[in-house]
Amino acid sequence: MDEISQGLLAAFRLILTLDADLIEISLRSLYVTCTAVVISSVIGLPLGCWLALRRFRFRRAVIAVLNALMGLPPVVVGLIVYLLLSRSGPFGVFGLLFTPAAMIIAQVIILTPLIASIAHQAIRDLWADYHDLLISLNTTRGQRMRTLLWDGRRALLTAALAGFGRGIGEVGAIMIVGGNIDHVTRVLTTAIALETGKGDFALALGLGFVLILIAIVVNLVIHRLSGTEVRGRW
């Protein structure tokens, strides 16, 4: 309990004093995760919608694989991305290893199956309600996808927020591809791992509480801006 109270005090001290390193690390964490969530949503939401509408031979197998990839081990993703981006790898010429770009790539690979799978489940239920109407209107597949994505936007927001929640707390992959370089690729999760390794548990807990606070604030802001709870009452 003493270490937890010290961690809380460390968190309050870092926030109240507007610690420069904390602000830099927090902004980098938000930049990496938010960018990865946007890219993953652009890929995953249409993919999930397409799988809900499209019927083809190996559809169930594809959905099963997609669901399985939701539990993709981050360290394995980090290792694969590391090998691809290393100097001896096929994309080593771009010099992306140990940069925020590499961290974003790793997170996109991790988050896309999660967002796509949740989107597929949400759109599948919505498609059951809209099927007869959209078929009777003789709509194209593109029109159906746009309609379902728009009308299911609140449910799809949950998919994006789930991706954000997993991304902001991810440490394994970004530690491997980012290298936890100070002022370059250090984010909150890797900073927590570093301070824990150094034995500074109070500061590690303080950073952890800041991380939790950021995740809560971002979720509350998104829900407030989207009006999800307010509209859901009517």
Results as ranks from 00 to 15, higher is better:
Leu156Asp: 13
Leu225Lys: 03
Arg57Glu: 15
Ile214Leu: 08
Pro74Leu: 10
Gln107Val: 07
Leu72Ile: 13
Gly89Asn: 12
Leu194Val: 12
Ile15Asn: 12
Val65Pro: 02
Gln6Asp: 00
Leu53Cys: 10
Arg59Tyr: 08
Ile123Met: 13
Ile104Asp: 08
Phe164Gln: 05
Trp150Val: 06
Phe209Leu: 01
Glu3Lys: 00
Phe94Thr: 14
Leu203Gly: 13
Leu111His: 09
Leu8Val: 15
Leu16Lys: 07
Thr189Leu: 09
Ile23Thr: 05
Val65Gly: 12
Ala64His: 04
Ala159Phe: 01
Gly163Met: 14
Pro74Phe: 11
Ala52Tyr: 10
Asp132Trp: 06
Arg154Glu: 08
Ile39Ser: 09
Ser136Trp: 03
Gln143Tyr: 07
Arg55Thr: 13
Ser5Leu: 05
Leu97Val: 15
Leu207Gly: 09
Arg59Leu: 03
Ala52Pro: 15
Arg55Cys: 10
Gly71Met: 13
Val171His: 04
Thr140Asn: 09
Asn138Ile: 10
Ile25Pro: 02
Phe58Leu: 15
Gly89Leu: 08
Ala52Ile: 09
Gly95Phe: 02
Gly142His: 02
Gly179Ile: 14
Ala122Ser: 14
Leu157Gly: 05
Asn138Trp: 06
Leu225Arg: 01
Ile39Pro: 05
Pro46His: 03
Arg124Lys: 12
Thr17Gln: 03
Ile216Gly: 06
Pro73Val: 09
Ala159Thr: 01
Arg57Gln: 15
Arg166His: 12
Leu27Cys: 14
Ile15Met: 06
Ile115Pro: 02
Leu213Phe: 01
Val187Phe: 00
Trp127Lys: 10
Val221Ile: 07
Gly152Asp: 04
Met145Leu: 07
Leu149Thr: 10
Ile39Asp: 10
Ala162Glu: 15
Ile109Met: 01
Gln107Glu: 12
Gly78Ile: 11
Val65Leu: 09
Leu8Asp: 09
Ala68Ile: 05
Leu137Gly: 00
Arg57Thr: 12
Ala160Pro: 13
Leu79Ala: 11
Ile110Phe: 03
Phe91Trp: 03
Phe209Arg: 01
Thr158Trp: 01
Thr196Lys: 06
Leu72Met: 13
Ile181Asn: 02
Val75Tyr: 14
Gln143Cys: 04
Ala119Pro: 04
Arg144Ser: 15
Leu72Cys: 06
Leu111Met: 12
Gly197His: 14
Thr147Asp: 12
Arg57Lys: 15
Ile118Glu: 13
Leu134Asp: 02
Arg154Leu: 02
Val184His: 04
Ser226Pro: 11
Leu85Tyr: 12
Ala173Asp: 14
Arg28Met: 05
Ser29Pro: 09
Ile135Glu: 15
Trp234Asn: 07
Leu126Asn: 11
Leu18Thr: 12
Leu27Phe: 08
